[in-house]
């Protein structure tokens, strides 16, 4: 029971970023490794507003999301957009370079110390055999609400559907009069905000330091790949499974192998089900 709760709790941290990653993959057709570093950026921006500036966390969090989205937009303008024709491999490599730049710019600016949000100390609630900290509940609620909101937006709104259409086939979308450039911008803003939110949620649970993203990108990727890249619903499902796998590993093996779980999941998923649980073959350019 506690294991399941912990699994849901770690899934809640990675799910928004995994949905963001999968949206970016669907729109731009490359694995954007900078998602991890952008999570860190979101966490640091939120921390800056929360601790030195002194805003409450619920006000600082949107700031973190906005900064992450702006960072993604800047990376797109400077690094990805000029290479859009170059293919997935080149863009993947460039995104790792972007991750290095963001991560180390943060280290340069903030140093390597560990930081944390200004959260009131709270006693975990004990419900029978289960312990649950109030922050944990908050993380789960915010994560679930944001992911559900994005999903509803994608399936019900005019612009959300256009994002899916542009991800499916940008050429045809343009032929039908959909403004693909604007849709891409909307996708970057939305995915960037989700990734930033993921960073904030991670910052509630984990220590905020410049290397935060490297530890998170793997479970995020694992969730997206396991669920089927390009499928937001799959990313959520993948996040739950990865969270569960991590907790079970920590239970039956040693907790030090928890971090390797993401990789094992990725490799197994790629080998056994290359298109993931809910994915399908994506048309490559």
């Amino acid at each position: 029971m506690q294991t399941i709760l912990n699994a849901i709790s770690s899934a809640a941290i990675i799910a928004p970023a995994a949905v963001g990653f999968t949206l970016l993959f669907a729109l731009f057709r490359f694995a954007n490794f900078a998602v991890g570093a952008l999570m860190t950026l979101g966490a640091f921006a939120c921390w800056t507003l929360n601790v030195p500036v002194g805003l409450p966390l619920w006000l600082a969090a949107p700031g973190g999301m906005a900064v992450a989205a702006a960072g993604l937009w800047l990376a797109d303008r400077l690094a990805y957009a000029p290479l859009r024709a170059a293919g997935g491999a080149t863009l993947l490599l460039v995104s790792i370079a972007v991750a290095l730049v963001v991560e180390n710019a943060l280290r340069l600016g903030y140093g390597g110390q560990i930081r944390g949000f200004d959260l009131p100390l709270s006693r975990p609630w004990v419900l029978g055999p289960v312990r649950l900290a109030p922050e944990q509940l908050g993380v789960i609620a915010v994560s679930a609400a944001s992911v559900a909101g994005v999903m509803l937006w994608l399936s019900l709104s005019r612009w959300g559907r256009a994002v899916r259409a542009a991800a499916d086939d940008p050429t045809l979308a343009a032929v039908r009069g959909v403004p693909v450039g604007k849709i891409h911008a909307a996708g970057i803003a939305g995915a960037g905000a989700l990734v930033g939110l993921g960073g904030v949620l991670a910052g509630v649970d984990l220590a905020i330091e410049p290397g935060l993203g490297w530890a998170l990108i793997i479970p995020v990727l694992a969730a997206a790949i396991l669920g089927g890249v390009g499928s937001p619903m799959g990313a959520v499902l993948g996040a739950l499974l990865v969270g569960l796998a991590e907790e079970v590993t920590a239970l039956v093996m040693s907790p030090s192998y928890k971090a390797a779980v993401g990789f094992v999941v990725i490799v197994l998923a790629l080998l056994l089900r290359p298109y993931g649980l809910l994915g399908r073959e994506l048309v490559r350019k």
Binding site: F30, I218, I225, A260, F263, I266, L270, R284
Partner: peptide, 20 residues
């Protein structure tokens, strides 16, 4: 195991190998 994977997925699988 992974040579049949498309470019970027091979990259992720090999990265996984190194980390393991």
């Amino acid at each position: 195991l992974s040579a049949r994977l498309v470019g970027d997925f091979l990259a992720i699988a090999t990265l996984g190998f190194a980390e393991i």
